[in-house]
Amino acid sequence: MDSTAFDGDKILNEYLSDYLDGNLNKSECEVFEEYLDENQKEREFAQKAMKGKQALNWMANKLNAWNNLEIEFAKRIALEKLKRSSKSDIVN
């Protein structure tokens, strides 16, 4: 990947991070987007960073869904074991 102004500029990196997270106010966002419009390499880098962030969010959502499913299965299994245990206590 080509070097960009983001490589050595901590402040610019903070702006990018805030931009990607939606933490810039309207005027800051407009100025940053003007900067990206005027700087192709940085715009491409920001677009790739946004896609990467979206992919990570998608994966995190899938992982959370899977974890929730595992928790639900564990609850159902525990409930079924409790029901079977209660039935065997009644029989005995």
Rank of each mutant, 00 (worst) to 15 (best):
K75V: 05
N92D: 15
Y15Q: 03
M1G: 07
G8H: 04
S88A: 10
Y15G: 03
K81R: 14
V31I: 14
T4P: 00
L56E: 08
L36T: 06
Q40Y: 11
T4K: 05
L16I: 00
M1C: 15
N25F: 10
G8Q: 11
K75H: 03
E42I: 07
N67F: 14
N64V: 05
A46P: 00
D37F: 11
L20Q: 01
L12A: 03
I77S: 03
V31C: 09
E34V: 12
F73K: 12
Y19K: 02
N64Q: 15
D9T: 10
K81F: 09
E42G: 12
F32L: 01
K41M: 06
F6D: 02
K81W: 02
N61V: 02
N57D: 06
K62S: 07
K51Y: 02
R43V: 00
E34M: 02
E30Y: 10
K10S: 09
E42V: 06
D9V: 08
N64A: 11
K83F: 09
A78H: 02
I90S: 02
S17A: 12
C29R: 06
D37T: 14
S27T: 15
D89Y: 10
K62H: 08
M59Y: 13
F6Q: 03
D89T: 05
S17P: 07
L56W: 03
N61C: 12
E80Y: 07
M59V: 14
K83Y: 15
A60I: 12
E72Y: 11
C29H: 05
E44H: 08
L12R: 02
N68H: 02
D18A: 05
S88M: 09
I71V: 07
L56V: 06
A5G: 08
Y35F: 14
Q54G: 03
K75R: 07
N25K: 10
K41V: 05
T4E: 07
N25Q: 12
E38G: 04
L56Y: 10
V91E: 14
L63P: 00
F73L: 15
K53G: 02
R76W: 03
L36H: 04
N67A: 13
R43M: 13
E44I: 09
V31R: 12
S27D: 11
A65E: 15
